[in-house]
């Protein structure tokens, strides 16, 4: 009972923060709204017994990635006036219309999937030990190594791009 009530509360918070992300005029307010959204999603992951993913969500998304975003926003110190969110402009109307059609399509597509019941969980589901077993003993060892290579390439790429002279 409490679990689903908390899920709905945090879902509502995530949606409000998500709306705030796309409607705020200043990028820093958007970024802080996005942090709130990420924390709410982390709470939702806990309700879905994904404890390890919830911790990684807070550490990597709300921590590392958003710090990078806020760092860049403050580093650039943009002074030019921003038009903000303009739902009544042609761009706004076309954008909202296209996104609304997409949302209807997603919900229609998912309609047949939602009626299957949730499975009962084995002991330790979602803990780091069980996730680690799937990650390292299953078929995901090669993708894991590929991701580590991707992160190295991303880091080198970021340094090369942002450096003044190569």
């Amino acid at each position: 009972m409490t679990e689903s009530v908390l899920f709905y509360l945090f879902s509502l918070l995530a949606v409000i923060a998500g709306v705030s992300v796309i409607t705020q005029r200043s990028p820093i307010a958007s970024a802080l709204s996005l942090v709130v959204c990420f924390f709410a999603l982390a709470a939702d992951y806990v309700m879905l017994d994904a404890h390890f993913v919830a911790v990684v969500q807070v550490l990597v998304y709300a921590g590392a990635i958003m710090v990078l975003f806020i760092f860049v926003i403050m580093l650039l110190n943009i002074r030019e006036p921003s038009p903000g969110f303009t739902p009544l402009s042609p761009r706004g109307m076309f954008g909202m219309g296209a996104a609304g059609l997409l949302g209807v399509a997603i919900i229609a597509m998912l309609d047949g999937l939602v009626h299957a019941p949730m499975a009962t969980l084995p002991e330790g589901y979602g803990r780091i030990a069980e996730v680690g077993k799937v990650l390292f003993q299953g078929a995901y060892l090669l993708p894991f190594e590929a991701v580590s290579l991707l992160l190295t390439v991303g880091m080198i790429g970021a340094v090369v791009l942002a450096k003044r002279e190569v």
Binding site: M1, Y8, V15, G18, D44, L48, A99, G103, I106, L110
Partner: peptide
């Protein structure tokens, strides 16, 4: 303890994805 069903999870996922597309 009653867990939440799949329907609200996918609904939230669809709403957040649509918000991202609007942005």
């Amino acid at each position: 303890m009653e867990t939440v069903g799949l329907a609200p999870v996918l609904a939230l996922s669809g709403v957040l994805f649509t918000l991202g597309v609007v942005g």
